[in-house]
Design a binder for these strands. Sequence first.
DNA 1: TGGTCGCTTCGGTGGGCGCCGACTGTCGGC
DNA 2: GCCGACAGTCGGCGCCCACCGAAGCGACCA
Lengths: 235, 235
Amino acid sequence: MTTSLEGQDLAAWARMLADGTRATVCLALLDGRAWTATELAQLAGVSRPTISEHLNLLVDGGLLTEVRQGRHRYVKLAGPETAELLEGLAAVAPRRTEVANSLSAASKRDAFARARTCYDHFAGKLGVALPDAMTERGLLDWTEGVALTAEGQRWLENLGIVVEPRRGRPAVRSCLDVTERRPHLAGAVAAALCEHALKQGWVSRIVGGRALKVTGSVQTLGLPTSVVRELLSRS
Amino acid sequence: MTTSLEGQDLAAWARMLADGTRATVCLALLDGRAWTATELAQLAGVSRPTISEHLNLLVDGGLLTEVRQGRHRYVKLAGPETAELLEGLAAVAPRRTEVANSLSAASKRDAFARARTCYDHFAGKLGVALPDAMTERGLLDWTEGVALTAEGQRWLENLGIVVEPRRGRPAVRSCLDVTERRPHLAGAVAAALCEHALKQGWVSRIVGGRALKVTGSVQTLGLPTSVVRELLSRS
DNA sequence: TGGTCGCTTCGGTGGGCGCCGACTGTCGGC
DNA sequence: GCCGACAGTCGGCGCCCACCGAAGCGACCA
């Protein structure tokens, strides 16, 4: 029966994520950066031989790709579609613990699509509106990938945001958004913006998920008033 | 560390599908019907005690729901979003190179790829041709995700299709097709279209699987004649 | 009330695999 | 060449879990 064969294939794929250590690794890699084996071993709390075998398994399975540089082994997610799939799964998985009241579930899903964090930066409607507004005002340059302009640098400084350079991570980066299917802003600058907004109280975390509650102060980021109004509706 | 906790949650969810027997069960339930425990045991080729424990696990995990009637236990997928998630996973999971070891197996696979159901809507060549044709005729709007236009609404009414709104379920939604690797149409409207086509006899179920037999009347859906001819070939 | 059917519970068994320590391989710097 | 840092391999341990047979339980039928 062809059905059972397909079942074996699906099971073999799912088994890649069916281990806590591997799942932790994959979620950590959702930021799009490349990590070394030792970093991931520390993060997951296992020894280096163990993480080495897990990474072999994930690379062979096509979930991750690796780049060898000297004595380092950098691994990252295989591509944007892998990241999307993982984010989708991660959004579904913890629903197990939630009480399935349909009204609250609907409003939660709404809040999730409106504004949330993707690892350490914004995603959802808020996530894609941010680079739109920044591009409109000449803060981002898209001629070669995406980069922060001099004006963008000044804008950050005026907001009182200092972006501490972190090894191997670009300042700005584009990342495909799961719900909007359009790129949102990632990278160190996006992370700093997210952290700043949280610290200033422009947005706050809604407990029990990655969704964010938005306040009117969020327009300090330079978003159009129509977008701000949409983000504020029913919240 | 919240990261490792989320990793454990994701792993716990993935573990539901990480067994060949459970994956086979889930794929079989993609036809949208309710199966008994004994039927699934025969399909998966395991004993009844074994399938009983697997079903407990899947129901507890929220992937399936069950209805007890007398001495029978009927299980089915928890909902449309569960079905779409499964189809998406089956689309990305690498399939072993299938060898057509028999003529009947080849023709079955052919019928499966041509037209079938995915939970409660169309999939396969028919499944992806439908949104293509609807977009061509201005019935769908893709500017922000996918949505039904006013013309699309009128088209449905002219066909005599009433879509009963279901709380929390979008009218139209895109869902990755397993065989075509392109999105087909899901959601309440797609379900209504499928139900209508079955009731009108435009398509009919081929016993023993999810594949559909297509008649010429299917062009009532507005598909191009070339697609209709392809769907009708050898069937 | 006894018989059949569908399903579940309970022990027991075997295999798979996640984990580590110890060792080896490889690269870069002094 | 030697050494330190990063990574891979090997062998072994222990746990988890998929599986089954036997027995138990409730539902339906006579």
